[in-house]
Amino acid sequence: MKGKVVSYLAAKKYGFIQGDDGESYFLHFSELLDKKDEGKLVKGSMVHFDPTPTPKGLAAKAISLPLE
């Protein structure tokens, strides 16, 4: 699924993505496929991810940034 980063707290390594389906997904650095892309996780960045339901809500897994 595609989505847009709505927040990312680099110090805490987490944030949120708004998916194309309108839902909010929890984003964690550990799910970023290329850790070098962390600096690109800023508000408004477009990402691809696997939407995954968890006991705490919806989460983004296997997060990647589109090729530039």
Rank of each mutant, 00 (worst) to 15 (best):
M1N: 05
K2I: 10
K2D: 09
G3K: 01
G3N: 01
K4G: 04
V5S: 00
V6Y: 08
V6G: 05
S7A: 11
S7N: 11
S7Y: 15
Y8G: 01
L9H: 14
A10V: 12
A10L: 09
K12F: 10
K13P: 01
K13W: 04
Y14H: 05
Y14D: 02
G15E: 02
G15H: 02
G15T: 02
F16R: 06
F16V: 06
I17M: 02
I17H: 00
I17F: 02
I17C: 03
I17P: 01
Q18K: 13
Q18P: 02
G19I: 02
D20W: 08
D20M: 10
D20F: 11
D21L: 03
E23K: 15
E23I: 11
S24F: 14
S24L: 15
S24G: 06
S24D: 06
Y25N: 01
Y25D: 00
F26P: 00
F26G: 01
L27E: 00
H28G: 06
H28M: 07
S30Y: 09
E31P: 00
L32W: 02
L32Y: 02
L32N: 00
L32C: 03
L33S: 06
L33E: 06
L33P: 02
D34L: 06
D34Q: 07
D34A: 06
D34T: 06
K35Y: 09
K35S: 09
K35A: 10
K35G: 07
K36S: 13
K36G: 12
K36W: 08
K36Y: 08
K36V: 07
D37L: 09
D37V: 08
D37E: 07
D37N: 08
E38K: 04
E38V: 10
G39E: 12
G39D: 12
K40L: 10
L41I: 07
L41K: 01
V42A: 09
V42S: 09
K43F: 11
G44L: 04
G44N: 07
G44I: 02
S45K: 14
M46Q: 12
M46K: 11
V47S: 01
H48G: 06
H48V: 14
H48L: 15
F49A: 00
D50S: 15
D50F: 15
D50E: 14
D50H: 15
T52F: 15
T52W: 15
T54L: 06
T54S: 08
P55S: 11
P55R: 10
K56E: 07
K56Q: 10
K56A: 09
K56T: 08
K56H: 11
G57M: 04
G57V: 02
G57W: 04
L58W: 12
L58I: 05
A59F: 10
A60E: 01
A60I: 00
K61F: 09
K61H: 09
K61Q: 07
K61P: 01
A62R: 15
A62H: 14
A62P: 02
S64K: 12
S64E: 06
S64L: 10
S64W: 15
L65A: 06
L65I: 13
L65K: 04
P66C: 15
P66W: 15
L67F: 12
L67G: 13
L67V: 13
E68P: 12
E68S: 12
E68G: 12
